[in-house]
Design a protein around this nucleic acid. Structure first.
Lengths: 264, 264
DNA sequence: CGATAATTTGACCCCTGTCAATCGCGGTGG
DNA sequence: CCACCGCGATTGACAGGGGTCAAATTATCG
């Protein structure tokens, strides 16, 4: 199935495209409906909270703590006891697994509206680290579980989020397993654009706070290879970099076709 | 974190290690406790059903259909309307994504006790195809959703299964993204052994019904590369193939260390 | 404006993909 | 019972994509 088809399906069904152990709680807010600020955290994204009625919101709103976070701040470490769940209110984070030789695998990037660190295990399965300035909202695992117990609707929602995230990770697996360098970078950019679109931002010009090395660690490539792919994509007119950590995608359908291998 | 550590953690927490869009419904059955046949499907694995009381089991037991399936049988296709959920009672299946150039990415293998085809989307996200003879138990999506609605405990269970599956897919991503051929094959074998252990089978000699090509499509390798890795592992004494689609792993800890890159 | 980090580009080579031939095993039919 | 057939596995030869090392250029920030 062509990536274009997939993208269309994603657009149609309003599905997320990037992978992870975290889940998105901003999904229930359709791109067209006006985002209502969440009573719990004040975010202009619906989500888990969208499954709660006013009483429920009231009940858990005093159980959360908001914190400002900065680049390189670690939200949690792999192996740490998973005592809290983090909702990312603003900023971009990466989820990584460290390898014994010092390299890392980036499992995915996370944006405003995503849930990080939800797990049924005792400990976190990855590191979570901020790439930008931002703000997070922490809720203790006990309270989170309590919310799930008291509001069954939030469970259904969590299943949705989790299963969507699984689909995204599988898409990532296809990218890393079967595409070559330039296709991988193209697929990554499509994923980024999709994430922006989902959050109601324009998706032809987008923020890209991650370094070449981090993109490489996501895609299973050396940072130099990522750099070469970018210059190639820029030469071919698929990508522009106006500076300031921005990328411009003049022809997203063509880029998607390239990622899929339909274009040579 | 060394793979050994991960394996130990998995052993401790009884977690699954192989990836997917399907989820395992045989988890609640600890390796030590005697597996009780499931009233619904007769399987000697607990699981989703373990979250149901007798009344619930009674209620859904007439909503399922059991079918014998054969090698190459397709359980469902990517894109097909997801009208039913499949529980794999016996046999081995693979989940795949087809690429436009005819190649495929294997997302993972599935064994007795796994749930296939559960999704919150309208359509299946992958193909599911049998590798062996087996038996499946189908339940309509409506009835499955109904079960979730009537028995909240099954929701919690599904969240667990889904989040575990996500963790496995992430592990797979690390394997494909950052390890080289021989390490990938070693990691695959560890995953297989882990799956066998979880189902209460011996994990030093195991069935391996998949071809080199299918393993390659899982690991992002050419089938020839997989073959070379196997001969290498056999020469080094990590693997024996007594024939009959069996593999023997004389030193699993060493194999795990190799997969992790601790061994050269 | 200096210092540090990020990116780009080049050179080189190794791992792995590709193509091709051979081997081995299991099944089938004479 | 054995020859034949076909699929999967193995092995070899070769080339290319991308990793690695290194240096130059640019961007970022105090």
């Amino acid at each position: 199935m062509p990536l274009q088809t997939i993208m269309r399906r994603h657009l149609r069904e309003g599905l997320p495209m990037n992978p992870l152990e975290s889940t998105r709680f901003g999904e229930a807010c359709s791109p067209n409906s006006a985002p209502t600020p969440c009573a719990t955290c004040g975010s202009r994204v619906a989500g888990i909270c969208a499954a709660l009625d006013m009483a429920g919101l009231e009940e858990i709103s005093h159980e959360t703590r908001r914190t400002a976070v900065h680049p390189r701040d670690v939200l949690y470490h792999e192996g740490d006891s998973a005592q809290s769940v983090v909702m990312l209110m603003r900023g971009v984070a990466k989820l990584t697994r460290q390898l014994p030789d010092g390299r890392q695998q980036v499992l995915g990037f996370r944006f405003a509206g995503d849930i990080l660190g939800f797990t049924t295990r005792r400990s976190f399965a990855s590191d979570a680290e901020m790439l930008t300035e931002g703000q997070v909202c922490r809720i203790s695992r006990r309270d989170f579980e309590g919310m799930l117990a008291r509001f069954p609707a939030t469970q259904r929602r969590l299943i949705e989020l989790c299963s969507q995230e699984l689909a995204e990770t599988q898409e990532q697996l296809v990218t890393v397993g079967r595409r070559q360098a330039e296709q991988r970078v193209a697929a990554f950019l499509i994923t980024l654009a999709e994430a922006a679109r989902r959050r109601g931002l324009r998706h032809d010009v987008l923020d890209m706070p991650m370094t070449r090395a981090e993109i490489g660690d996501l895609l299973g490539l050396a940072l130099e290879t990522v750099s070469r792919a970018f210059t190639q994509l820029k030469k071919r007119g698929f990508v522009k970099e106006p500076g300031g950590h921005k990328v411009e995608l003049p022809d997203i359908p063509a880029l998607a076709a390239l990622a899929e291998g339909d274009l040579e």
